[in-house]
Design a protein around this nucleic acid. Structure first.
Lengths: 111, 111
DNA sequence: CTTCAGGTACGATGCAAGTCGTACCTGAAG
DNA sequence: CTTCAGGTACGACTTGCATCGTACCTGAAG
C-alpha cells in the first residue's frame, strides 16, 4: 500500500453504487477513461486532464473518484498526483475498466 | 426485435453515461441485479420486485431503465411486462451484467 | 522576506433527479 | 353498466449534486 496518503476504501470495500455514481458524471468518466487507457499506470498530475471546469470543481471530482476507491491521490503539499487503482478495481469489479474503452472518444463534452 | 412496443435506443446506440446514471440509483440497480441473476430472461411483471416506493416512482424508474436501453417494457394496457435486454447489453458492454452480481445481496436498501 | 501557482475549505447557487399526491386511463371481472 | 387493480400524466416538493466565488494554505522560486 505504498504512495497512498489520501486514502479511499480498501479493495474489498469498494461499493458498486459509489462506483456507478462516480462514473455517471461525464468529467469524472473522461478522467477514468484516460487513466484506463494508459496501461503503464504512471502517476499523473491532476491538471494533465485539462477539464473545462474550475479548480474547486476539479478538487471535488477527484475527491469523489478517490472516495469511490477508483484512484489514489498523492499529496505533495502544493501539488497532487493521481494514480489509477487498477489492480484493486480489477480484483473487485473485473471488466469494469474495459467498459470505459467502449465509449467513443470525444464524447466527453459537458452535457 | 419482437415484443418491444415501448422502445428504447438500439443496441449500437447505447450510451455509457446513460447506463451508469441508470445504475447509480439503488432501486434501479436492485431491479437490474435481479434481472441479471435470472439466466432464463423470462418476462416479469413490474410489481414482482416489491420496491419500497410508490407506483408513480416505479413508473419513473422503469422508464429510465428503458430509455437507457437496459430493459424492454411490454405494454398490455392495464399491466406491463419487463424483460432484460441481455444480448444487446452484452454486445455493447460485455461484462457489465456480471458486475451486478458482484454486489452482495441485501445491500439494496434505500439510501 | 515576498510572490506566485497549485490546491483546499466553506458557502452559495442553480439545476437535475427521486419522490409522492391527485387525477385519469385501460382492461378484466362481476 | 359498475367496480377495481395496474399503470400513466402532471405537478409540486425536496434532496442531491455540479459549479463557482471568496478566502486561505502549501511549497518552490526570486
Amino acid at each position: 500500500m505504498a504512495g497512498r496518503n489520501l486514502v479511499g476504501p480498501e479493495a474489498d470495500a469498494l461499493d458498486l453504487g459509489a462506483v456507478f455514481r462516480a462514473l455517471a458524471d461525464e468529467h469524472r468518466r473522461s478522467v477514468m477513461t484516460e487513466l484506463a487507457a494508459d496501461r503503464s499506470d504512471s502517476e499523473r498530475g491532476c491538471n494533465s486532464f485539462d477539464l473545462p471546469i474550475s479548480k474547486q470543481t476539479q478538487t471535488h471530482h477527484f475527491r469523489v473518484l478517490r472516495e469511490a476507491g477508483l484512484i489514489d491521490e498523492i499529496d505533495y503539499g502544493n501539488r497532487k498526483g493521481i494514480r489509477l487503482r487498477r489492480t484493486d478495481i480489477e480484483k473487485r469489479f473485473p471488466g469494469l475498466l474495459a467498459l470505459l474503452g467502449e465509449e467513443p472518444p470525444g464524447d466527453t463534452a459537458p452535457r
